[in-house]
Simulated assay, not measured.
Amino acid sequence: MFRAIDLDGYVSRLVADGVVKSEFPPVLSGLANAARALVKVIASSDKGSDLGGYIDASNGSGDAQTNLDVIANKIVMASLSETPLAWLASEECETPVALTPGAPFSIAIDPLDGSSNIETNAPVGTIFSIMPTSPCGTSEATFLQPGSHQVAAGFFVYGPRCVLILTFGHGTLTFALDPDSDSFLLSSDSSTISEMAREFAINSSNARHWSPPVRSYVDDCISGAEGPRGRDFNMRWIASLVAEAQRILVRSGVYLYPRDKREGYENGRLRLVYEANPIAFVIEEAGGAATNGTTRILDLKPVHLHEKTPLVFGSRREVELIARYVRGLEGGLQPYQLFSDRGLLRI
């Protein structure tokens, strides 16, 4: 009879095969423990405790915090406090926290992505990026490395099932939390994103703020089989980065969170170090692509820990096409697709 391998066993096997370092099993075990605890906290968030309510505080990146953000950060900190990590950088903290001096790896994490959606029972998650600790040992030098230096990354999705999407740079793995054994069991070791996309995800309520290339791309998708794309598209928007990423891993498609004209959105909204970089690593290892509109996300060198970036990821051909829309306008050349005078989202 087939017996699914659990996360601990799988990572231990990678260590034995020399694929990953011996420091990884306790780190992944700590992350898994945090996820198990968060599953229980999230499930009990409707019992009069108002966990999804906002508090009079902001996190390290300037966003308003919910009670659940604070609780999730405490759970993650406690679960990783004794693991072989030199530094822990969290979206909820302005500066990194020192853990184990001299440890070869460090972690940047968004403890609870999508926490504002908790009251609607939408999927939320935890995103993490594991980096080699800089030889000089400082947190700044460690977390301001390009995302291409990541040694592992992934995210948990707390939805109908709790799943872990993970990469060590050798493909994208999926584990699901088994309610009977309370173990994360391997469900796929070869996630692949199709190059052909028939879905795109973007918050169309912001259309009036988009740049012309983004409006043109979305217009051309919406025009369907009769338009320049020659096929029909479905539009999706869950407002949960981890849920969007998992859907694309399962069904392909493309996700756009572009920069726009609103104050605070000039450089995008998602954080490069602990949101865009780990998502990009996972997506690329599944055969997809991730850019800031034109440039590969993993090639960007962060300037500060909480730096923001536009983010486009998903099916490779679609991501490359969006870059051609953008470059066509920015370079002063003829735009790749039609910039018609009329369209559903034309301003």
Rank of each mutant, 00 (worst) to 15 (best):
M1C: 05
A4W: 08
I5A: 08
D8R: 13
D8T: 09
Y10I: 00
S12P: 00
S12A: 13
L14T: 02
K21I: 00
S22N: 06
S22K: 12
F24M: 15
P26D: 11
L28M: 13
A32N: 03
R36H: 07
I42W: 02
I42C: 05
D46T: 07
K47P: 00
G48L: 08
S49T: 08
L51D: 05
I55V: 15
A57P: 01
A57F: 04
N59A: 02
G62V: 05
Q65V: 10
Q65C: 14
T66Q: 11
L68F: 14
V70A: 12
I71R: 10
K74G: 09
M77C: 07
S81M: 09
S81N: 13
E82G: 04
T83R: 15
A89Q: 14
E91I: 02
T95R: 12
P96C: 06
T100M: 15
A103I: 02
A108P: 05
I109F: 08
I109R: 03
D110G: 09
D110I: 04
L112T: 03
L112D: 09
D113G: 05
G114L: 10
S115P: 10
N117H: 04
I118H: 04
P123K: 04
P123Y: 08
G125D: 10
G125Y: 07
F128E: 07
F128P: 03
I130T: 04
M131E: 08
C136G: 05
E140T: 07
E140P: 00
E140K: 14
A141L: 12
P146G: 08
S148V: 10
S148L: 12
Q150G: 12
V151I: 11
V151A: 03
V151H: 03
F155I: 01
F155D: 03
Y158A: 02
R161P: 00
R161S: 12
L164G: 04
I165Y: 02
I165W: 01
L166R: 01
H170R: 13
G171M: 06
T174S: 14
L177P: 01
L177D: 03
P179Y: 04
S190D: 15
E199Y: 13
F200G: 09
H209D: 15
R215M: 12
D219Q: 13
D220G: 10
C221M: 15
S223K: 14
E226T: 08
G230D: 11
D232L: 06
N234T: 11
N234Y: 12
W237G: 00
S240V: 02
L241E: 06
L241W: 08
A243F: 09
E244P: 02
A245K: 06
I248V: 12
I248G: 05
L249K: 03
R251T: 08
E263M: 06
G268H: 12
L270H: 10
L270C: 05
R271F: 11
R271G: 02
R271H: 15
E284Y: 04
E284G: 04
T291W: 09
G293N: 10
T294M: 15
R296C: 12
K301R: 15
K308W: 05
V312T: 14
V312W: 09
F313C: 06
S315K: 07
R316Q: 14
V319C: 10
V319I: 08
G332D: 07
Q337P: 01
L338G: 02
F339H: 11
D341C: 06
